[in-house]
Write a protein that binds this DNA or RNA. Structure first.
Lengths: 239, 239
DNA sequence: GACAGTAGGTGTACGCTGTACACCTGTCAA
DNA sequence: TTGACAGGTGTACAGCGTACACCTACTGTC
């Protein structure tokens, strides 16, 4: 019978993590509570604690699952192409798991999987002729873009189920906004193609990600070529 | 008597927000609960709801208080100097309010104060000769650095009260780490001055912030000079 | 001066969270 | 056969945000 069949698939850390990831994919990260997750697995909440130490460790594990989906770049490319490929692969993964951004940002401790990934990224720079010193700083400069996402600058994650306001209402809102915030209006209309009714339409996140990435990678390459060293920092002045 | 004196200072949205900010400064953002905050104000939790709509609106207000402390740049500078000064001022503020990073990142809706600040930043670019189009993208590229902080790439926020492990233990940990993660070890030792015992010491966040900022600002200036436009994007190839 | 309206503080209650602790049960080794 | 133990259960607790009903003190109007 079904009950026995369910019994025959015992819980395991792996099964717990997989279901947690699936639940987050389906219902959002805020739906992932110990109780809800246990219910999904047909089990009492405390049963989970035999497989993960607690909620925090659960989230760590979920992040590790995500990182496990990152694909390494093809060999034989220069550092810039390799890094670009690696990060765009990471990006594809976090787009698939939209909750991952928040989960990654909330983690304080770096798991072995996280360290392994960072080691690979660092290795790409080092292998490309970057000094260890410069590698350190450029990785800081990449920041969360290492994980395949940019910070959300504008509010693009409004309730996806909500009906968008009609175009004329949008145009009115935009006009009102423009009186207070002319510069924001200027860039919003430029993005929307000079059409006031398209202002709230959100940005092309993929383009923004690649744009910023390329500005950074080009800047890094320039520093590498110039033999930049942090020991020069005093001679740089404060611009 | 004291009770009457307390009565004579009635609650107000301003007083609630100020105390919330103070509490977050002293005890961390996670200590700011409606119950705890009410207690600090000598009042019952539900009393707060007469002044802020809920926890979310409270956090919005706290972020607005922080933004209110950002200083505008001195006039008469070129765009790059003005922006640098503005962002470093923002940075000084969020260093003062260490919880602000998390609070800002958690907000979904942009308040008027937030929009006003973003408008000022955008205005600096526009005034510096950037097209509205390019301004949009460079602001995305700055991302959270607009708010004066970089993402935390390495784990620098370990329990500040915890005693650091002794140097020889650190060196042992570093050696073990190095076998698994040689590239990380390389950059860590470069940072710590080739001294294994200094590896876990954390980074100079201020330097990392300015480093990344300058890479970005220099890249932006180059794009501006070249007359970059997003319409060129197809001709750029995919590198 | 009487009275209604209201702004603002109170008390209770509900449903949700993570998880400590004691308990039971089925499986496997000796 | 027995005893250990891995793993699932049940109860309980402290904390959270907040809905709702209530009370109280002040304020403007007649």
């Amino acid at each position: 019978m079904a009950e026995e069949a369910a019994r025959r698939v015992p819980l395991s850390r792996d099964r717990v993590l997989r279901r947690a990831v699936g639940l987050a994919d389906e219902a959002g990260i805020e739906a992932v509570s110990m109780r809800r997750l246990a219910q999904e697995l047909g089990v009492v909440p405390m049963a989970l604690y035999k497989h993960v130490a607690g909620k925090d460790e659960l989230l760590d594990g979920m992040v590790d699952v995500v990182i496990g989906e990152f694909a390494p770049p093809d060999p034989g490319q220069d550092w810039q192409a390799a890094l670009r490929q690696r990060l765009l692969s990471a990006r594809a993964v976090v787009v698939r798991h939209r909750w991952a951004r928040q989960a990654i940002e909330s983690r304080r401790k770096r798991s072995l999987a996280v360290l392994g990934y960072m080691d690979a990224v660092a290795g790409t720079f080092l292998g490309g002729g970057f000094s260890a010193d410069l590698t350190h700083h450029v990785m800081h400069a990449l920041g969360n873009r290492i994980w395949g996402f940019s910070p959300e600058l504008f509010d693009e994650t409004g309730d996806p189920g909500a009906a968008p306001p009609p175009p004329e209402a949008r145009a009115a809102m935009a006009r009102e906004l423009g009186e207070r915030f002319p510069s924001i209006l200027a860039i919003a209309t430029a993005t929307a193609g000079d059409d006031l009714s398209g202002v709230g339409g959100g940005c092309d996140e993929q383009f923004e990600y690649e744009f910023a990435l390329d500005v950074l990678l080009d800047g890094f390459e320039r520093l590498r070529r110039d033999g930049w060293s942090s020991r020069d920092r005093d001679q740089q002045g404060d611009r």
